[in-house]
Design a protein around this nucleic acid. Sequence first.
DNA 1: TTGTAGGCGTTATCAC
DNA 2: GTGATAACGCCTACAA
Lengths: 338, 338
Amino acid sequence: MNIGEIAKRAGVSRSTVSYALTGRRPVSEATKRRIQTVIDELGYRPNAAARALKEGRTRTIGLVIPPAGQRLTDMQLGFVASVVDAAARADLDVLLSPSGGEHDRSFERVVTGKRVDGVVLMEIRLEDDRVSRLLESGLPFVGIGRTRHPEDMSWVDIDYETLIGRCVHHLADLGHRHLALVNRNAELVAAGYGPGHRAQAGFDRAIAERGLRGVHVCCADDAQAGQTCLRQLLADHPELTAIATINEAAVSGMYRALAEAGLAVPRDFSIAGVAAQHWAENLQPPLTAADVPADEMGARAVELLIRRIADPAIPHRHLLIAPPISLRGTTGPVRSRD
Amino acid sequence: MNIGEIAKRAGVSRSTVSYALTGRRPVSEATKRRIQTVIDELGYRPNAAARALKEGRTRTIGLVIPPAGQRLTDMQLGFVASVVDAAARADLDVLLSPSGGEHDRSFERVVTGKRVDGVVLMEIRLEDDRVSRLLESGLPFVGIGRTRHPEDMSWVDIDYETLIGRCVHHLADLGHRHLALVNRNAELVAAGYGPGHRAQAGFDRAIAERGLRGVHVCCADDAQAGQTCLRQLLADHPELTAIATINEAAVSGMYRALAEAGLAVPRDFSIAGVAAQHWAENLQPPLTAADVPADEMGARAVELLIRRIADPAIPHRHLLIAPPISLRGTTGPVRSRD
DNA sequence: TTGTAGGCGTTATCAC
DNA sequence: GTGATAACGCCTACAA
């Protein structure tokens, strides 16, 4: 079923059908109605490929996510959901590309095959090949996250440095002197994962500013690892009284390790972090954390991207988000242990 | 950058470039090399829209997921990941469509705009408009899940009826006489969500077969709700000693309610269910459950879809999966309480 | 082994 | 207010 067939049956030309649909030129009410009747009858829809070919745009955006093998954190899932949602509201389709490995055909197709009008890129590293590829391709894109030198791209990001700094200050205010930062998994951090490095920087700076003692440690992104990790940490550093973390998936394991060690939260030990709101609230006990507004970030990223697609020449926009810390009761005044 | 430009610079005709790329006709080594050089130089890639228009296929599949607003369970996320992964392995792109509401433009676009060669449909209801739409559209599709009368579609599904039946028998074997089924959220079940109804049927049948007493209850899909729900359940039915569930997201809350009531698992109370393996393992304590092989199911669905796209006339295939129950220690012999 | 030409379904330019 | 027609970029008979 194509536009020619509709035109024939409605007794008009193809262009008239086209204009009746797009409204880009006046068409008389009578013919418009006649055309619509035929369309409804035959269930005609414009062919997306033909339209894309002619118009030079696909009404589709690409969403580049971490490879499917490694499972998404709740926060990442939140980004995906909100991007898809925001795109749907703007009548844009979303093409998913799991990418990150080297030999990445999916990513190449998306970037290079004119399959999408623009790209939202997740899980950006400090040095990121995909960013370079996108920059040289000229395809509009927006990062959820940013590289080390992010001036020449548009992005939305969480200010992990500031937020972890705030966590440290908050804990310091409560009298804690020996803190640990529990980071994301070691491979990610070693690969230059921005949030990992920035959280570390924020931690170190705040620790120095307040004259505290701090250690950092990487931890795989699941509860099991959180348990093992904190067990080890408590053994190695019995003087610890508080933790700051960006590893939401590991927190419930940390709780278990603390319970195991006979430490009550927040009476004997405090935890604060950065996490998706939904996740922080659903932990037991609910985690005192800076609630990352994943919904808003995804929507903003899509918004920025749409503008950029409309006019690739506009200056880049940067949105650094530092939500306030929601106190939920996992932090309290220090209490000496013996 | 189009094929004509490449042809011009390589000093050959467009068709030669095309044939050099597709290999559908012999091209001399020399010209092939010359063409490749130009291509590498200019970074040429065939325009996907033009190719789709000419070939009548898009090399893209649609993945219809529950609307983004409601958050995905771990199991659903597993399906998405495995579908995307399997598609990428077959060099297929995935177009995501959040759908389920009525006024669903995204779904309509996918089904009707020739944007995809086929569709994987998730979260199918017993009566499902989307299935009817797809059937009448003639677009190849495969369900992860199935309708009430699923003979005329291809699908991969979990045999909730059998699995929950097995859970009940397992619990009965351990001496439990009073069981409850904790289902997914009430709206979903009321809307005819297949797994919910089939789990209930399996529960009722097994209960009857073993001459037990059983109640069922719906519960929203989060830990908080699980806690409230079980608290209520224990109050209303103090004689309960075990639970079977398909609501993985609520289990950790159920644990909390049990602890609250001074009931130890599995000493005083048993729980068994159906859940994503990753989720069951990460609960504390790890849940005795039929481990849903989400990876395999997504891969199978894509496999079926690819075959169906290649030849829409082949008979439908149905894959009903009933993984064994992994004993992880949340079920034990009944112990009378007083 | 290579070139020429037509058409996939749309939109847009030109003419009436 | 409407119709014919030329692109968009690719693939593939058909010719040479």
